[in-house]
């Protein structure tokens, strides 16, 4: 009788351990599977599907404050562009996009043209937009980069 107990104890333990290890093996797969239906883009309207939530916020800020001069595509051809001397920067130019870091762009938006030694026609937005909004618009500006050729 004693021996039976001796056998049963380890068997129970083994069963428990087996259950745990099976669970461990399954766990890492779970988040990856969950990621597919839960992304916000899956719920968004079809037309806006390629843009993440942050980018849509950034686009909102861009359309509200920047588009008037810098244009819808960032090419510096907004309807007010030709009243401004010097003309607004072409933000979609790949060379410009490459030369400026995110921090450069953020700085120019927050302190304005004058603040970074350029034209005063670009106003400073540091007191108008929150730092998060500036980050979002910088992120959106990156999507405006023109693909040449």
């Amino acid at each position: 009788m004693k021996s039976r107990f001796q056998i049963l104890g380890p068997v129970l333990l083994l069963l428990a351990a087996g259950a745990c290890s099976r669970h461990k093996a399954a766990a890492p797969a779970a988040p990856a599977a969950a990621a597919v239906p839960a992304t916000p883009t899956a719920e968004a309207p079809v037309a806006e599907a390629p843009l993440s939530y942050e980018l849509r916020l950034g686009r909102g800020v861009y359309q509200h404050h920047c588009q008037t001069c810098h244009g819808e595509t960032g090419a510096g051809d907004g309807f007010n562009a030709f009243n401004v001397d010097p003309h607004p920067r072409d933000l979609s130019e790949p060379a410009f996009q490459k030369a400026k870091t995110d921090a450069d762009l953020k700085d120019a938006i927050q302190r304005g043209g004058l603040g970074v030694g350029l034209s005063a026609m670009m106003p400073p937005y540091g007191k108008t937009l929150s730092p998060e909004q500036v980050d979002q618009v910088v992120e959106y500006l990156r999507t405006l980069k023109r693909i040449d050729g």
Binding site: P31, A34, A35, A38, S52, Y53, E54, L57, E132, Q136
Partner: peptide, 11 residues
């Protein structure tokens, strides 16, 4: 990051 770990968008 992949869900469910992604940072909540700033609102």
């Amino acid at each position: 990051a992949p869900e469910p770990f992604r940072l909540h968008p700033a609102t």
